[in-house]
Computed example of a mutant assay.
Amino acid sequence: MIRAALILACLPGLAGASELRKVPYDSLRGQPHRIETFDSLPSVTEPGINFDQHWRAPGLSIAERLLGQGVEETDTDFGRFDVLNGGPGAPPRVIPGASGQNFTIAYHDGFGSNALFPLGPVGFAGADGRGEGSIAFTFDDPQFAFGLRLHAEYPDPLGQRPMPRAAQVAFYDVKARLITRFVLPLGRGVISLAWRSGYGIAAVTIENTDPGGIAIDDILYEVEDLSG
């Protein structure tokens, strides 16, 4: 179970909690949309296919961070992780990480399909490097509805694995201004996440401190709203 659906941090931004709404993922998927599944690549088990460049899909780009941001390492009791610092430049643009520290795409048992693993400081070769990195998305056109599926940890009926921890998600507009930033407590298994925003979302960044790292799949965007 997710311990809380969403914790909004008290940080400056264009939008408050009332202007960013968490909505059911399937409510967006039921509308005409684009979705990036990473299944255009061969299904390869971990460590998967290493990408030192950005990923490009129609209307969507993915890499480690946004232009203007730096990345540092934080060393914790439960792993080594990427931490983003600095503000992005306008318009937002994704920038790959160092070789072997950007992301990998591999078959993921939890999703039953390919997924993206952001690579942390340990890098591509180490199991404890896959999932501990930061990741950034940019959209060609501002999005008012957006979703993804995230996996933090497998079910653990014997209680032998550490508890999942948290991710920090930030949304930016086309001028690279922070819309909002929030902390998302993570749970076991696949978490489906989706939001609607009163401001057009041009970029998203995700960092995490989960002991097992995270994987991302089924990025949902260019949702056509049929309500009107």
Rank of each mutant, 00 (worst) to 15 (best):
I135T: 08
I191S: 03
L14W: 13
A176M: 11
A136E: 09
F137Y: 02
G16C: 03
S113Y: 03
M163Q: 11
D26G: 10
Y107F: 14
P142M: 01
A167S: 14
D109K: 01
A170K: 04
V122R: 00
G86Q: 14
A4F: 12
K22F: 11
L193K: 08
Y154A: 15
E36N: 00
L186N: 10
E36P: 11
L67T: 12
I62S: 12
T205D: 08
D140Y: 01
L226Y: 02
S197L: 05
G86P: 06
P118G: 06
I201L: 00
G48Y: 09
D39W: 01
P24F: 09
I216F: 05
G87T: 09
F182Y: 09
A152K: 14
S113W: 00
L158N: 09
L186Y: 03
T76W: 06
A170T: 12
Q53A: 03
I191Y: 01
G189D: 13
G87Y: 15
A5Q: 11
R80M: 06
A194G: 01
P157C: 13
V183L: 14
G97A: 13
A57K: 15
T138I: 09
P155A: 12
L67S: 15
G147S: 00
N102A: 02
Y107P: 02
P32M: 07
L184C: 08
R3Y: 03
G131S: 08
Y25M: 07
P58Q: 14
V44H: 03
I179C: 06
S27P: 08
P211F: 05
Y172Q: 08
G159F: 15
F144K: 03
A90V: 07
L66V: 10
G100V: 10
G228Y: 01
R21P: 05
V183F: 15
A215D: 04
Q69P: 09
D39E: 15
M1W: 15
L158F: 15
D128E: 12
L193A: 04
T138W: 05
F182Q: 06
L150K: 12
S99F: 15
M163T: 11
I201K: 13
T205L: 00
I216D: 06
T205H: 05
Y25E: 02
S192K: 02
G159S: 10
D39L: 06
Y154G: 14
G126M: 13
P142Y: 15
A9T: 10
V44C: 10
